[in-house]
Nucleic acid binder design. Structure first.
Lengths: 203, 203
DNA sequence: AAATTACGATACCGGAAAGTTTCGAAAACC
DNA sequence: GGTTTTCGAAACTTTCCGGTATCGTAATTT
C-alpha cells in the first residue's frame, strides 16, 4: 500500500507552532503539474520541471507528496472536479448529443492531452492506472449510467440494452481516435456517433 | 527524417567480403523485442534486456538499427504480418461477429500487451505513433472498410452509414477497455457490440 | 526573544539506461 | 594465409532524473 499524501509526522490535526504550510504554493504546484501534462507529454514531466514552473522548490514538493506520481494524481483530482455533469433534458437524443459534443470539446482542448498522458502512464504504473479509473473513468460512467437508466425506466430507451456495453460504445470511438490519432476529433463525429448509438439503443 | 534501418555504409547490395550478417541473430533480436513487450511494459524494454534475451550483443543491435525504437517498430511489422484477415462469409452479422471475436482473442492474449505498449509509447514518440498507425491501424481499417463497402454495395448494409465512424464504433469499445481497464474484455462483449453495431448500421 | 516549522535555492547522490568503444574470436572472400 | 566484416562480451561514457541534504531566510506560536 501507499499513501498519496504525507501526514505531518507527529501532530495529527496540528495547528502547529512553526510557519504554516503555504497553500498558495500547493496550488501552484498542482497547477504546474496540470499545465505540464497539457503542453508536453508525461516523459518530460519531471519534478524539476514542476518545481521550476511553479516557482517552488523540489524540497517543498517532496515535503508534501511522497513521489512524483502522487502530485499528478492529486492534480488530476482537482482538474476533474470541475467538469460538467451529464445533461438531463428529458430527450435521449439531445442528452447524448450534448454529452458527446462536450466530450469532443474537452478532448480537443488542452485537457485532452492530460488524459492521453494519464492513459499512457497508467500502462506502466498501476497506481496511476487505478487513480485514473477511480477519479475520471468511474465517476463519468456512473453519471452516464444513472442518466441512461432513467431514460430506460421512462421508456425512451430499450431496457434490453446492456448499459455497460452501450457506454463503451458511446465513448470508445473518441478514446480510440484520441490515442491512435488516425483521424481527427470533430463535432461531426459526435453527431454521427449519436445517431448510430440511438439506433443501437432502439428496439 | 530518419531511417529505420542502417545501410552498409559503402557497399549497396554488398555480397561483401567479410563475415555475413547473422540473419538468425536478427530474428532472435526481433523476437526478443516482441516477447519483452508481451510480458512487461515499454518502460522495462531496454536495449540491455533485448540483447540479453536474444543472446545477442548490444553492439550487434546498434550495428543494424539506429535506435531502440526502430527495433520495436520492425518487430511490430513482423508480428503484424501474420494476422488474420477480415472474414468474408457474405453474412454481415457473421463477418462482424467473427472479426470482433478474433479481436478480443487477440487483445486478451499476449499480443494485447504489445498493442497497449505501442499506444502508450506512441504518446511520447511521434515516430512510434506513425509506425503504429501505418503498420497496425491503417491496414486493419482498410481491410475492414473494403469488406463493409462490399456489404453496402450488395445491399446488406445501409449506404448512409459513414464507414469511418462505423469502424471506430466497432473497435472503439475494445481499445477503450484495453487501455482504461475498467472492465474485462470477453467474447460476450464482442457479441453485444456486434448486435448494437448491426442495429446502428441498419436503416 | 526563543523555538519551531516551512520556504526557495542549490548542491549532491545514486541508479538506470542509451549509445559507444574495445577486444578477441569467428566466418566469409580473394 | 591475409583481409575484411561480423559476432558476443563487457567495459565505458554520458545524460537524465528521482529523491535527499544543506543552508540561510521567512512566518508563526509561546
Amino acid at each position: 500500500m501507499s499513501t498519496l499524501t504525507k501526514e505531518a509526522p507527529e501532530e495529527i490535526v496540528s495547528r502547529g507552532r512553526g510557519r504554516p504550510r503555504d497553500e498558495e504554493a500547493r496550488s501552484r504546484i498542482l497547477q504546474a503539474a496540470i499545465e505540464i501534462l497539457e503542453t508536453t507529454c508525461f516523459i518530460n514531466a519531471t519534478t524539476d520541471a514542476i518545481a521550476e514552473r511553479a516557482g517552488a522548490s523540489k524540497a517543498t514538493i517532496y515535503r508534501w507528496w511522497p513521489n512524483k506520481e502522487a502530485v499528478f494524481i492529486e492534480a488530476l483530482r482537482e482538474a476533474v472536479a470541475q467538469e460538467m455533469p451529464f445533461p438531463d433534458t428529458g430527450d435521449l437524443r439531445e442528452d447524448i448529443r450534448l454529452q458527446l459534443q462536450n466530450f469532443v470539446k474537452l478532448l480537443t482542448g488542452r485537457r485532452g492531452r492530460t488524459f492521453k498522458a494519464f492513459m499512457a502512464a497508467a500502462q506502466s504504473d498501476p497506481e496511476v492506472a487505478e487513480a485514473f479509473r477511480k477519479l475520471w473513468i468511474a465517476p463519468r460512467r456512473a453519471q452516464t449510467k444513472a442518466a441512461l437508466e432513467r431514460h430506460q425506466r421512462e421508456g425512451r430507451m430499450s431496457k434490453d440494452v446492456d448499459l455497460e456495453v452501450f457506454i463503451d460504445l458511446l465513448y470508445g470511438p473518441f478514446y480510440l481516435r484520441l490515442m491512435a490519432g488516425h483521424r481527427t476529433l470533430t463535432p461531426a463525429l459526435a453527431d454521427a456517433v449519436t445517431e448510430m448509438a440511438l439506433r443501437a439503443a432502439k428496439d
